[in-house]
Simulated assay, not measured.
Amino acid sequence: MISEAQFQKELQLIISNAIREDVGDGDHSSLACIPASAQGKAKLLVKDDGIIAGVAFAKMIFNYVDPSLQIEVFIEDGTPVKYGDVVFHVSGSSQAILKAERLVLNSMQRMSAIATKTKKYVQLLEGTNTKILDTRKTTPGFRACEKWSVKIGGGENHRFALYDMVMLKDNHNDFAGGITLAIAKTKAYLKEKNLDLKIIVEARNLEEVKEIIASEGVYRILLDNLDYETTKKAVALIGDKCLTESSGNINENTIRNYAECGVNYISSGALTHSVYNMDLSLKAI
């Protein structure tokens, strides 16, 4: 995974680019009718039920827009919330609050939705030894926040991007001339480049599982779109040779069944690509 320093850099890039996109050469609505000296206060109001996420990110946004803004937090990230809850107050320059408002709301609404869905999946896995993983199926330019939201909801992060882990999927294996060749070429490449990256390899059937096992040095086998019985057989074949991960057709109705097959991880793109934003608003007080 990426380092904390890299992660923080990604967050700052998200903020700077979003402000550039939203504000441009100025928030002329505020500049036109609100004096630069005007001071105000607003509250972050919850209008939905779920898990709140993005509080710490909102503080980063406000600080970027105007470091003199004061934020008083009442509900921290990862806390269950209900309609009518007030998450924080922000006070200071009225122009600055309005300048940051839309980015704060857009971010927190989506982050809270992801955290809420992740928490539901985590609860469905309770009593098993299986952990839920996110994927790279994220909103372009907003990945760091979405993966942060998965962690807030109690899930685990998969690789952050293409550069921090090797994942040989079906197309890689087919283009490389087969699984065994793909793994061998990958090991040689990592050695040549002096890279210490974990290798995950996708298997579409039990024969491919056996082929992957025959090549040492694989960190995890991705059991893709296998039914329950085949998944159980694959887990038994793999044993403690490497970790296991199920993916494909994972939803609220199937996740528990796959966990009970004995896999270490279940990955689901739905955590980040199929959510409905939590209803939040920033109201002057």
Score class of each variant (00 low, 15 high):
Leu223Ile: 09
Met111Thr: 09
Ile250Gln: 06
Leu133Ile: 01
Glu245Gly: 09
Ser91Phe: 11
Thr139Leu: 13
Trp148Ile: 04
Val122Lys: 02
Lys187Leu: 05
Val87Ser: 02
Leu98Arg: 10
Pro80His: 13
Asn171Asp: 06
Ser268Gln: 08
Met108Asp: 01
Gly84Trp: 14
Ser247His: 03
Glu207Trp: 07
Phe62Gln: 00
Ile238Gly: 04
Lys210Tyr: 03
Ala176Met: 15
Val201Gln: 10
Ala184Val: 14
Thr139His: 09
Ala5Asn: 11
Asp224Gln: 04
Gln95Glu: 06
Lys151Glu: 08
Leu243His: 02
Asp174Pro: 05
Phe142Trp: 13
Glu21Phe: 12
Asp134Ser: 08
Ser68Lys: 13
Glu245Ile: 06
Ile75Trp: 11
Lys241Thr: 12
Gly50Cys: 03
Gly269Phe: 13
Ile52Ser: 09
Glu4Ala: 10
Val46Gly: 13
Asp224Trp: 06
Asn63Ile: 03
Cys242Glu: 12
Ile52Glu: 04
Ala113Leu: 04
Ser29Ala: 14
Leu237Ala: 10
Ile285Asp: 11
Asp196Asn: 14
Lys169Glu: 06
Gln12Gly: 00
Ile51Cys: 09
Ser247Pro: 10
Asn17Pro: 08
Asn194Gly: 10
Phe160Arg: 01
His273Leu: 09
Lys99Asp: 10
Phe57Lys: 01
Gly154Val: 07
Gly40Met: 11
Lys82Ile: 07
Ile199Met: 07
Ile152Lys: 02
Ser112Thr: 12
Gly78His: 10
Gly153Thr: 05
Glu72Gln: 13
Ile200Thr: 06
Thr180Arg: 14
Ser112Asp: 04
Met167Arg: 03
Thr128Glu: 00
Pro35Gly: 11
Lys131Trp: 03
Asn173Glu: 15
Ile238Pro: 03
Ser94Met: 14
Arg159Tyr: 10
Gly177Cys: 15
Thr138Ile: 04
Ile255Val: 06
Met108Ser: 04
Asn253Met: 12
Val166Ala: 04
Phe160Ala: 03
Ala236Phe: 06
Lys185Leu: 14
Ala58Tyr: 12
Thr116Arg: 00
Leu280Ser: 02
Ala182Gly: 08
Lys43Pro: 00
Val122Arg: 03
Phe57Pro: 00
Leu133Gln: 03
Tyr121Pro: 02
Ile19Pro: 07
Thr230Asn: 14
Ala96Tyr: 07
Glu202Ser: 08
Leu223Met: 09
Cys242Ile: 09
Thr138Val: 08
Ile238Asp: 05
Gly141Leu: 13
Thr186Leu: 02
Ser215Ile: 11
Asn249Lys: 14
Arg143Met: 03
Ser215Leu: 09
Leu190Phe: 05
Gly153Pro: 01
Gly239Phe: 10
Gly262Glu: 12
Gln6Pro: 07
Thr180Glu: 15
Ile14Glu: 13
Lys120Val: 05
Asp227Gln: 14
Ser274Cys: 12
Gly26Ala: 01
Lys82His: 15
